[in-house]
């Protein structure tokens, strides 16, 4: 977007900061057991205090309460949202963003404080204010702005019962970064669980990975001078021969160096993830994972024994265990 567009957008949006999005709204239903029960069923709430009057009365609560995380529910608009949501200042603000190409919207954070338990018969009124709009940010989703609204919840006596900060990102969708587009499986609509990133297989390395698929780790050997080499390459660096065969490694070795990975978490891998350079008894080194031991207990020089294992739906890999 041009500097002029950005200025025009920012002039309009920042004018919304501090505005209430509309009049205080009284919940259409008072806090009631039917809605609580439906909520508790879906959420897997096991506590009887949410729907069993008799058992609830034996607890410190002395009777049924609404699940605390339900607070926002009492402010929701309900079925009209599906087709013709009410136009308020918040939607007007979003429409300004949309008109400048910031069509993406993503809830990123909520922070909900509960000042007291809500009980059947309580009546909840909510009022939402547009509290802050950030400066323009570059996010993983695309360029955008964070909008924070604050909703204050009051009861039938005008006493505050809770407060919620809701943070959304309005952004220009990043074409190359659409998670859904990238991972979706057209037929089922459900992405498959991710697997590890496979090695590309070319003429010089494909044979090695095919052997791994069959459960073996091979080491390339020069036919002319018998020097072993890994990773594979087409020519012997000792004698320049392009003739080679291979031997199968017994996968006995020791840890030459290792590191444990925590961040970023790439889908398909389990963290903390321990990777090591293994010095094999045959004399060559191999990078592989160390498993079957707490990562903090791994040491350089530790003896390890490898085996080729299936690590996910599609991947066979050598994995090393303490010997």
């Amino acid at each position: 977007m041009t500097a002029a567009d950005r200025q025009a957008l920012e002039e309009q949006i920042y004018a919304y900061v501090g505005r209430a999005i509309g009049q205080p709204k009284k919940s259409m239903d008072d806090v009631n057991v039917a809605m609580i029960r439906q909520w508790a069923e879906v959420m897997g709430d096991e506590s009887s205090i949410y729907f069993d009057q008799q058992r609830a009365s034996t607890t410190a609560k002395g009777g049924i309460i609404a699940p605390p995380s339900m607070l926002q529910v009492w402010s929701m608009e309900g079925y009209p949202m599906a087709a013709s949501p009410a136009v308020d200042e918040q939607r007007a603000l979003h429409q300004i963003f949309d008109s400048f190409g910031f069509t993406g919207v993503l809830g990123t954070n909520t922070s909900t404080e509960m000042y007291r338990d809500l009980r059947p018969g309580d009546s909840v009124t909510s009022q939402t204010t547009i509290d802050t709009i950030s400066e323009q940010k570059a996010t993983a989703r695309g360029i955008g702005y964070f909008i924070e609204t604050v909703t204050v919840f009051t009861d039938q006596h005008g006493e505050a019962v809770g407060r919620q900060v809701f943070r959304v990102l309005k952004f220009i969708p990043n074409e190359s970064n659409g998670q859904g587009a990238q991972d979706s499986t057209e037929q089922s609509g459900t992405p498959a669980p991710p697997v590890r990133i496979p090695s590309p297989r070319g003429q010089d390395n494909g044979w090695w990975w095919q052997a791994v698929d069959a459960g073996k780790v091979l080491i390339q050997r020069c036919k002319s001078c018998s020097t072993l080499r890994h990773p594979p390459r087409p020519m012997c660096g000792q004698c320049q021969s392009v003739e080679w065969d291979s031997i199968e490694s017994a996968l006995a070795g020791e840890v030459y160096s290792f590191t444990t990975l925590y961040h970023p978490k790439v889908p398909g891998y389990h963290y903390p993830l321990c990777c090591a350079v293994i010095e094999l008894a045959e004399g060559t080194r191999l990078v592989a994972n160390i498993v079957g031991i707490d990562h903090d207990a791994v040491t350089i020089g530790m003896k390890v024994q490898g085996k080729v294992e299936q690590v996910d739906e599609k991947t066979m890999l050598p994995q090393f265990y303490p010997a």
Partner: peptide, 30 residues
């Protein structure tokens, strides 16, 4: 939706803590 995520957090913690507990605050990052 976010309310369900929030609800699952809430039920996970209160199922652990028991009925006499009182949830004061839930900060949720999606």
């Amino acid at each position: 939706n976010i309310l369900t995520s929030n609800g699952l957090v809430g039920s996970y913690v209160t199922n652990w803590a028991g009925p006499d507990s009182t949830t004061k605050k839930i900060d949720l990052k999606l």
